[in-house]
């Protein structure tokens, strides 16, 4: 019997939360619906041709009719993005660990990591395309932009270990490897995942920029290449359709990495705690 009242209260609480959730979802979706309707109305009332502004229904139709082409391109772009992200994560984390272990290496290399980051990737892409085969150049661009947030965040994380815990490890004469594996890396994990979340979006941007730069010169088949190609052909509905897919891919990457971060940290880290109402 004693268990019943709290459960009832829980039920009420979760119903309140569900209401909140529904509102959180319906509001942006509603905004989108209103926007789409207005867009459709403008095209209809102004009698605009599709090569000036295609109606949303026309874009949707193109998305369906051109699906085989667009789907293949999406896979190419996503493949580049994920590979770039993976390499950036591995490379960024490895370099951050190296920096953490050796001040000398950090002093020698860190400025160049910064230079790589602050130089606009749009400007680097054409050069890379000169020297590298196109798929490799695109991958390199995705890697360059995704690399730095991983490096910077992991470095920050490795350096923000609780001083007392460091003392504790000293007290028990822990080796450098033990301190790294049991103390520094776990402490840095929330930072690394934060860096990865930023890097995911940037990797997509890097891949897109390189594909655009390659443009008609390349034999590429990524989504951004489709956009460029459709632009030359004044196939505006397909440009919109590809853009929607790119945007969706970006959202999906961000959501997936957020979920990953939540799953890894949910048992112990403040960022993953549900706040009590």
């Amino acid at each position: 019997m004693s268990g019943a009242p709290p459960r009832a209260q829980d039920g009420r609480m979760s119903r309140y939360r569900i209401g909140e959730r529904v509102l959180q979802l319906t509001l942006p979706v509603g905004t989108l619906a209103v926007g789409v309707v207005i867009w459709e109305a403008i095209v209809l009332l102004g009698d605009l041709p599709p090569y000036v502004l295609p109606a949303p229904t026309r874009v949707a139709a193109t998305l369906i009719s051109d699906w085989p082409v667009l789907w293949g391109s999406l896979l190419v772009t996503l493949g580049t993005t994920f590979l770039g992200l993976l390499l950036a994560f591995v490379g960024g984390t490895a370099l951050a660990i190296l920096f953490n272990q050796s001040r000398l290496v950090e002093r020698a290399l860190y400025p160049y990591a910064v230079i790589l980051q602050v130089t606009p990737v749009v400007a680097i892409a054409p050069l890379l395309l000169v020297y590298l085969p196109q798929p490799v150049a695109v991958l390199a661009c995705a890697w360059i932009v995704a690399f730095f947030p991983v490096l910077a965040n992991t470095t920050l994380g490795l350096n923000s270990v609780d001083r007392n815990l460091v003392d504790l490890f000293t007290l028990y004469r822990a080796s450098r490897l033990q301190a790294l594996l049991r103390l520094k890396l776990p402490a840095a994990l929330p930072y690394m995942l934060g860096g990865l979340r930023i890097a995911g979006g940037l990797s997509l941007i890097g891949a897109v920029v390189a594909e655009i730069a390659a443009g008609s010169a390349g034999a590429g088949s990524g989504l951004a290449y489709r956009i460029a190609e459709s632009g030359y052909r004044l196939n505006i509905p397909r440009m919109f359709a590809a853009l929607i897919l790119l945007s969706g891919a970006g959202i999906a990457i961000f959501a997936a990495l957020s979920l990953l971060s939540h799953l890894v940290l949910r048992r112990w880290h403040e960022s993953a705690l549900a706040r009590e109402p």
């Binding site: 815990l165 504790l168 490890f169 049991r182 776990p186």
Partner: peptide
């Protein structure tokens, strides 16, 4: 000064594991 990512048992075991 506990490791937030480790359980109570994991925290207490730390000195032993380090040795």
């Amino acid at each position: 000064t506990l490791m937030p990512w480790a359980t109570v048992a994991g925290n207490v075991a730390l000195p032993l594991r380090l040795t």
